[in-house]
Design a protein around this nucleic acid. Sequence first.
DNA 1: CGGACGATTGAGGCCTCTCAAAGAAAGTGG
DNA 2: CCACTTTCTTTGAGAGGCCTCAATCGTCCG
Lengths: 259, 259
Amino acid sequence: MSMPNLSALQVAPTAPGDAVNLQALRASCSACSMHQLCLPMGLDQGDMQRLEQVISRRRRIKRDEVLYRPNDKFDMLYAIRLGHFKTFQQNPNGGQQITGFQMAGELLGMDAIGAGVHLCQAVALEDSEVCEIPFASLEELFRDVPVLLRQFHRMMSLEISREQRVMLTLGSMTAQQKMAAFLVNLSSRYVSRGYSSTRFQLRMTREEIGNYLGLAVESVSRLFSSFKKSGVVDVNHRELELLDLPALRAIALGTDPCA
Amino acid sequence: MSMPNLSALQVAPTAPGDAVNLQALRASCSACSMHQLCLPMGLDQGDMQRLEQVISRRRRIKRDEVLYRPNDKFDMLYAIRLGHFKTFQQNPNGGQQITGFQMAGELLGMDAIGAGVHLCQAVALEDSEVCEIPFASLEELFRDVPVLLRQFHRMMSLEISREQRVMLTLGSMTAQQKMAAFLVNLSSRYVSRGYSSTRFQLRMTREEIGNYLGLAVESVSRLFSSFKKSGVVDVNHRELELLDLPALRAIALGTDPCA
DNA sequence: CGGACGATTGAGGCCTCTCAAAGAAAGTGG
DNA sequence: CCACTTTCTTTGAGAGGCCTCAATCGTCCG
């Protein structure tokens, strides 16, 4: 029997001169519904508390607010507690290329470790909440908590293989396949977060989807319409229902009999 | 003044029952021309020796030989000492999607840490040589050599941002831009290895380039021809010379005045 | 209520793929 | 060492998918 952890309710110690910030709450990993996906996965009670001491605070990010932008100095990782983000790189000719959509339980900022500065920009797609993880402190903790280090490596590696999957998508699929693969991917990520695999809200615009998949907005719209007409999805604005997940999978794999 | 390191010439201690393997040479990081790009970067003499003890052996990989394939258990990372590799994922409909070309000084296998098994296949594009790095031993060493851990994180992070760059390429560039960006990228990687920025050999086929960039072989061939005709490159078979690197950069960025 | 933004649908054009054929290079076996 | 096969590369012609341009409609928010 362990004592209930109330640290989530405590205000973080304010530095001298700082205004009291009610949002600077200590993070409580043990009480966080994402701890099975996030860094604390596999940690025992004691190690989890040490991690909580490293996580400086939780922070609310409003819709469209920027979490970090290119050339910002890298010193934090961000664990998404709640909400959705997009990350994008500036495209030389003005536009932006979205490199990913992130949801609760995922880690932001790992791509900046190498250069020491951020290379892309992270923006909240809706009102969200992140845990700020000072990377220097995290590195110190790695020495004492090998399980945590292993989990961190796991998450970095998963990010690499995720992007490899995207490359596969972008490189050698038709627009239809890309869209189907995108929806199936969202579905599977919602499942592992305890949400429905078939009904969820799109947190991004059609334009953002198209940007991510390398398609024009109009193509995305047409694909939604055609999927709707053939009965594999039902979609109203952002509200989405996957009526025939197996069919979507088949389309994504290019094994669709109705292609 | 330090003693010359002769460990590269010593045969690794053979386990009881093992046949003597002349190729199982101890790796010598200090004598390796790639140590400024690879894991030992920033390590002092002592730490480098500890790393050498972890690196079990060097291994020669012949052209077309497979280093690892999907579902192989992950227990090693591979540092490329010499030569070139490609990594690819199996495409559901039979084909393969190349996710990257790797050269000396780069690390292979990091994408497998997450799943514990390899997800893609690594094949040598020419006779090559790698250092085998048992990951479990490396993890132990991380505890004692924080600099090494930091360098490892740096390399994983660079891999993430490299793939983000590729996504940007694949997602929102014309065929011409993709090719130019590809050549410029190769050029810059050869520079940091001490080779010419303008003259080098392509280690991959046109088909592999096309596969990587999401283009048909014929498109790749046509693009080489058109680049040659406009005088920005000279190419004969695999022999390549970048005659106008600034122009190539401009094409890649979409700011080419002759577009 | 009106403006801004996002989404949908249509028409036309271009880029890149596919199909096809032939030449060149590299590797193989006698 | 040479003929042969295989693989790689190049070039052409045609088709198709997706983009661009344009207009309309619905929704959200000030």
